[in-house]
Design a protein around this nucleic acid. Structure first.
Lengths: 184, 184
DNA sequence: GTCAAATTTGAGCATACACTCTATTTTGGA
DNA sequence: TCCAAAATAGAGTGTATGCTCAAATTTGAC
């Protein structure tokens, strides 16, 4: 448990190294050597701060899931919410990358994590649905929710498409999807 | 190189074991022991057929990418193409799962594979765009392509959403997305 | 049934891996 | 400056991992 300032900084360096390795190389590239090399520390330092390598990886995974959770601002329009999500996908790219990887690879052996992700997605659906109903109240709650579920899943698909092909027009497709979702 | 019938069958068993392990456990669970246990063979048999573990994994990856490639039928409607894709996502679930995992985790170190996936996606975009233009010719080629890119990325996002949450209505959302895409 | 080719087994090898533990160095407060 | 707590380095340990290789078994054609 880090107490001193240098320990806290080392911890953060280790987590950042783990995160960028996950994003860059994938889970198979996560060895202790790769983490410590990237963080600029040695094994002893690592184990002073984390009990196991697994603990560091799980911390990064939890951070990524938490980072993808919507904030609690009460006054956002759907457009603001969508743009914030897309901005996150593009600007926090290693965090978003870790999140998408987890979302795809989470298996029955990782049931708690899968549920955590599903819960975050449901929360996002609720928040985006509320925002949509403020914009177009007459479409009804069930229709609004269905539209938002499509929207959010599509945005995740757009994030992946952009990863595969850098020329994918993430903002253009987001705008199109937003127009279709908010159509009266 | 398998010559006898039993060798060919063993090879297929090994590939299937590798594929289902990738889908079930992810790349970190791919050890030689896990593969051979699941395939019901021993290490020597494995290495009679594959030079390295990596070769077996890459073969499975390539098979998954190839399986996701659209077929060459010339007369399909967009609805047929979309339904075939979605059926594949749901019924060939370990193959689709491997594909989505590869798509998300492919990194700069796997540039040839990323390009292979991007090429397959582009081909799918072309085929689906042609089908859309047969349905609604007046929207123009650029608009049709943009709509199809959104559609395909969204379908992939739907596949992931269903993986996270089994209650995600894949067919319902697909239908909605298809209607929006084909709107005049 | 025979027999050469193919396949399979499994003991063993080298090494990468996660981790321990002790000596040394650094930090931070008095 | 002192000193206890915290942090760090790195040699070493045990084991999991990918793979080799020779003996044994099976396959398939004649």
């Amino acid at each position: 448990m880090a107490r001193y300032k240098v320990g806290l900084e080392t911890r953060e360096r280790i987590l950042e190294a783990t995160r960028t390795l996950l994003a860059d190389v994938g889970v198979e590239g996560i060895t202790l050597k790769a983490i410590t090399d990237r963080a600029g520390v040695r094994a002893g330092s690592f184990y002073n701060l984390f009990e196991t390598k697994e603990e560091a990886v799980l911390t990064v995974v939890r951070d990524a899931i938490t980072a993808m959770d919507p904030g609690d601002e009460a006054s956002d329009t759907l457009e603001d919410l969508v743009n914030a999500y897309v901005t996150f996908l593009t600007e926090q790219s290693s965090m978003a990358q870790v999140y998408l990887q987890i979302a795809v690879t989470t298996t029955s052996t990782n049931e708690p994590i899968r549920k955590r992700i599903a819960k975050g997605q449901q929360y996002r659906v609720e928040r985006f649905t509320s925002a949509l109903l403020r914009d177009v109240p007459h479409i009804g709650a069930a229709e609004a929710k269905a539209r938002i579920e499509s929207l959010i899943a599509a945005l995740n698909g757009f994030g992946i498409a952009r990863h595969i092909d850098r020329s994918f027009d993430l903002h253009g497709h987001t705008r199109r999807m937003l127009e279709l979702t908010t159509a009266p």
